[in-house]
């Protein structure tokens, strides 16, 4: 599938900011199921974009913009050619053995409720990792209502699990926490998702999880959509949790009254038959 992504993050400040520094993880890399045809980042302020690779192999850009800034827009635009690999991730950059992804983080700490959920699921499916992961995926998709209102970027897996509500970030955190609690390495993926219902305008990026199954490798699980990763998923960054893969992390100096808006456009540019 050939997918075009336009992703705009805009900030407006009532009192102009004197400076802004940001760390961006907005650039996809190639793997066996994904090839980046073209991609570029634009920042509305005068600044230098410094590129580097982070610990997990994500492509990062950082910049410092000097004020006064009453507005700042970071826009990303590009095209990616994807291929269905039955959700198995191969050919990506791997800097660590899977066991690293058993680490808990503050956002993905499994509390008793999540542990119980994972253990109860395992009690039914047995120790077959893949079966267990599929069952957790189905249950989380069924139990947790998509709802952008009650949670925010700092909501932890256990908080969202109590609410039984949340967005793709929360579902992915819960999935990751649950998998790790039963000894399955799991990680957080940020990216984009091409919807097949014709909706192209979205107000946020997407997120899902990858879990490690020894016989297959890393497998993508999208609890929000209740499916495994497909060729509709554009994979941008990987981390232990949202913070490690966040599209934008930044700090503003001075200024006040910040309003943030995010626009994402994901559409298919050209149909190709795959053989």
């Amino acid at each position: 599938m050939r997918i075009r992504v336009v992703h705009r993050t805009s900030y407006r400040y009532d009192t102009p900011a004197t400076g802004v520094i940001q760390m961006l993880r907005l650039t996809p890399r190639n793997h066996d199921g994904q090839y980046v045809i073209n991609w570029r980042i634009d920042v509305s302020a005068d600044c230098r974009l410094n590129q580097h690779e982070d610990a997990f192999g994500n492509l990062c850009h950082s910049f410092t913009a000097e004020g006064p800034l009453s507005e700042l827009v970071v826009s990303v635009e590009g095209e990616v050619e994807t291929r269905n690999t039955n959700a198995v991730m191969t050919g990506a950059i791997e800097r660590f053995p899977p066991s690293l992804f058993l680490r808990e983080t503050p956002l993905t700490t499994a509390d008793d409720a999540i542990r119980d959920f994972a253990a109860a699921t395992r009690a039914e499916t047995g120790d077959d990792g893949l079966k267990l992961l599929h069952e957790m995926l189905a249950r989380l998709h069924a139990d947790i209502t998509f709802d952008p209102d009650p949670t925010h970027t700092a909501t932890t897996a256990s908080e969202a699990f109590v609410l039984k509500r949340g967005v793709c970030q929360d579902l992915s955190h819960i999935f990751v926490a649950a998998a790790r609690s039963v000894g399955i390495p799991a990680r957080y993926i940020s990216g984009h998702f091409h919807r097949d219902d014709g909706v192209t305008d979205q107000d946020a990026g997407h997120a899902w999880a990858e879990a490690f199954v020894p016989s297959l490798g890393w497998v993508g699980f999208d609890a929000t959509n209740g499916i495994c990763a497909t060729d509709a998923h554009v994979r941008i960054a990987v981390g232990l949790d949202y913070l490690g893969a966040a599209p934008v992390r930044g700090t503003r100096y001075g200024g006040s009254g910040e309003t943030l808006s995010v626009n994402v456009l994901v559409n298919q540019t050209q149909h190709q038959s795959q053989s």
Binding site: D54, A55, R95, F96, P97, L102, R103
Partner: peptide, 15 residues
């Protein structure tokens, strides 16, 4: 290995 990689004081960022 797990004593290192799963240790919270191990910083992947330094890899």
């Amino acid at each position: 290995e797990d004593l290192v990689f799963q240790n919270p004081v191990f910083r992947p960022e330094m890899n």
